[in-house]
Amino acid sequence: MIQIAVFSDVHGNLPALEAVLADIEKRGIQQKFCLGDLVDFAPWGNEVVEKIRSLNIPCLMGNHDERIAFDIPVFPLSKHSEEETVARFIAIDHSKEYITEVNKKFLSELPFHLKLNYKVGKKHWNIQLLHAGLASNETYLYESENDEVFIHMLEESQSDIVVMGHTHLSFKKYFEAGGWAVNCGSVGRSKEENRLASYLILTLEEEQIFPEIIQIAYPVEETIRGIEESGIPDYYAAFLKNERISVL
């Protein structure tokens, strides 16, 4: 049996990341992978990047990492409200200003995809890690997506399981033809009602893969206070409280 932990979408939330890493360590899991989006929306973008670097955790380039690394312009998204659009522009500009050049260089060199192959007994398991989609980091794939979309991803990547993040909503789907599609959720900016930090444990046995979504509490008050004391809009503090406020 082999166990690996996969997490994604930390978004500068250091207290949440530290809680997840502590939980993984407590479980004795040595293999850890991050699917990207280390920065934006909470004030510890540099600290999060440096934590990932210091622990040598393999990490993918999320769409926010790419935007900060290469100073890509920000455009409004139709799915966002007016207040979130305003807050998003301010928060991303904050990251562009405060993320160090060393950390921007690190983000710029992250891989887009990562393919893993683990051998358990006589069985080789192929695991495809990606941030959002096979072709784009701006693809939003939810649990409600047609099964054919995920089955095509499994076939195209020649994998037994595809693991993604990006949407901040965890799910796991098994297909009768064989294979899994799993979203590990978000460490630092969960859109699930409980706002808990979410990550994935994959247990690999010779006969099967067993994915388990783990959701844990963290000192969210510390994150809320950190946002309120920074130049990041209070919209993101209210989000963690499940509140709505005006940022205009």
Rank of each mutant, 00 (worst) to 15 (best):
M1G: 12
I2M: 15
Q3G: 09
Q3E: 15
D9E: 08
G12M: 03
N13A: 05
A16W: 00
L17C: 03
E18A: 04
E18F: 07
A19S: 06
K26Q: 14
G28Y: 10
G28I: 05
C34K: 03
L35M: 05
G36R: 01
D40Q: 01
E47G: 06
E47A: 09
K51M: 11
I57R: 06
C59L: 06
N63L: 07
I68D: 01
A69M: 06
F70A: 09
F70I: 11
F70L: 11
D71W: 13
I72A: 10
V74P: 09
E83C: 10
V86E: 14
S95H: 09
E97K: 13
E101P: 11
N103C: 08
N103H: 08
S108A: 06
S108G: 08
P111H: 04
F112K: 11
F112A: 09
L114R: 13
K115W: 15
K119S: 10
V120W: 08
H124R: 15
I127V: 06
G133L: 02
A135Q: 15
S136I: 10
S136H: 11
N137K: 08
N137M: 00
N137V: 08
E145A: 14
N146M: 15
D147G: 12
E148V: 11
H152P: 15
E155I: 13
E156W: 13
E156L: 13
Q158V: 12
S159F: 05
S159T: 11
D160G: 04
V163H: 07
M164K: 14
M164T: 14
H166G: 05
H166K: 09
H168M: 01
H168T: 00
F171Y: 13
F171S: 08
K172Y: 12
W180N: 08
V182T: 04
N183A: 05
G185K: 03
S186Q: 04
G188V: 00
R189Y: 12
E192G: 06
E193T: 09
L196T: 05
L196C: 10
L196I: 06
A197G: 03
Y199N: 04
I201E: 06
E207F: 10
I214R: 07
Q215T: 08
I216G: 02
I216M: 02
A217V: 09
Y218A: 02
E221H: 10
T223F: 00
I224P: 00
I227K: 00
E229G: 07
S230M: 07
S230N: 03
G231K: 00
Y236G: 03
A238Y: 02
A238N: 02
L240G: 04
I245D: 02
